[in-house]
Amino acid sequence: MSVIAFIGLGGNLGDVRLRLEAAIGVLAVTPGIRVTARSRFYRTPPWGNVDQPDFVNAAIAVETSLGAHALLDALLSTERAFGRVRDGERWGPRTLDLDLLAYGTAIIDDDRLAVPHPRIAERAFVLLPLADIAPDAVLPGQGRVADLLAAVDAAECFPLA
């Protein structure tokens, strides 16, 4: 059985666009994962700790036969392969960030994973790229992507050529 999942990608250190392209490539050849759609890249302001460079963000849709936690493990492994060290700092600068935004119609909230991502409805940097690939997707307990995007301020987020 396969599930459609949405993954948010971002970073703000080094050549982020090149790294995001490479990470998508790694995920595309990971057993049990098939990339089915990808968004444009967006330049977005930092969230939380604003004293850092702007981010580049994107989103992909995947069809996966992996369970939600196994998919999370694949994302974390990919982050590590690209030099990401999770040191406990929230909203800080990073080489690569891969977030499991939604996993089919599942609602999961345990010590390792929360999907749909609990703050997705507040974040233009997540919703803009997600709306590129799945504007009509309904995130369980949160609503339709296009409606969530219409409710946030995306004025400082710009698609990159």
Rank of each mutant, 00 (worst) to 15 (best):
residue 91 W to H: 12
residue 15 D to R: 11
residue 10 G to Y: 01
residue 30 T to E: 15
residue 50 V to F: 06
residue 116 P to K: 04
residue 25 G to N: 03
residue 124 A to V: 05
residue 23 A to Y: 02
residue 120 I to P: 06
residue 148 L to K: 07
residue 85 V to K: 08
residue 143 G to S: 05
residue 152 V to T: 13
residue 153 D to M: 03
residue 119 R to P: 12
residue 5 A to C: 11
residue 69 H to M: 05
residue 34 R to E: 14
residue 9 L to S: 01
residue 65 S to L: 09
residue 23 A to S: 11
residue 15 D to S: 09
residue 62 V to I: 14
residue 148 L to W: 04
residue 150 A to M: 08
residue 37 A to C: 12
residue 142 Q to G: 01
residue 37 A to S: 12
residue 116 P to H: 08
residue 135 P to K: 01
residue 29 V to P: 01
residue 34 R to W: 13
residue 156 E to W: 00
residue 158 F to P: 00
residue 120 I to L: 14
residue 89 E to S: 11
residue 12 N to G: 04
residue 67 G to E: 13
residue 23 A to P: 12
residue 140 P to Q: 01
residue 108 I to T: 12
residue 46 P to I: 14
residue 131 A to G: 11
residue 113 L to E: 10
residue 102 A to D: 08
residue 101 L to V: 12
residue 86 R to Q: 03
residue 132 D to M: 02
residue 119 R to F: 15
residue 55 F to K: 01
residue 37 A to D: 05
residue 27 L to I: 12
residue 82 F to C: 14
residue 124 A to S: 01
residue 101 L to N: 08
residue 112 R to S: 13
residue 13 L to Q: 10
residue 56 V to A: 01
residue 120 I to T: 11
residue 127 L to F: 03
residue 158 F to S: 00
residue 136 D to N: 13
residue 66 L to W: 02
residue 127 L to E: 04
residue 36 T to V: 14
residue 5 A to N: 08
residue 1 M to L: 13
residue 16 V to S: 06
residue 151 A to N: 05
residue 86 R to G: 12
residue 100 L to T: 15
residue 161 A to F: 00
residue 20 L to A: 06
residue 102 A to V: 14
residue 150 A to R: 06
residue 116 P to S: 04
residue 109 D to A: 13
residue 46 P to E: 01
residue 19 R to P: 14
residue 52 Q to R: 06
residue 159 P to F: 00
residue 113 L to Y: 12
residue 62 V to E: 04
residue 91 W to A: 10
residue 131 A to P: 08
residue 77 S to W: 12
residue 100 L to D: 05
residue 104 G to E: 02
residue 129 P to T: 09
residue 124 A to Y: 00
residue 10 G to S: 04
residue 143 G to P: 10
residue 84 R to M: 05
residue 160 L to S: 00
residue 71 L to P: 08
residue 143 G to V: 11
residue 77 S to N: 11
residue 95 T to I: 12
residue 146 A to D: 11
residue 29 V to I: 14
residue 79 E to G: 05
residue 148 L to Y: 05
residue 9 L to F: 04
residue 134 A to D: 03
residue 74 A to R: 13
residue 132 D to G: 09
residue 146 A to S: 12
residue 96 L to I: 13
residue 134 A to I: 10
residue 15 D to F: 01
residue 115 V to R: 01
residue 153 D to S: 03
residue 149 L to M: 10
residue 145 V to P: 07
residue 9 L to K: 01
residue 17 R to V: 12
residue 10 G to W: 06
residue 60 I to N: 07
residue 66 L to A: 06
residue 102 A to Q: 03
residue 4 I to T: 15
residue 25 G to R: 01
residue 134 A to K: 02
residue 39 S to K: 02
residue 4 I to V: 15
residue 96 L to P: 05
residue 111 D to C: 09
residue 28 A to S: 15
residue 28 A to Q: 10
residue 74 A to C: 13
residue 131 A to V: 13
residue 126 V to G: 07
residue 70 A to K: 04
residue 76 L to Q: 14
residue 111 D to R: 13
residue 89 E to C: 09
residue 102 A to W: 00
residue 40 R to G: 13
residue 80 R to T: 15
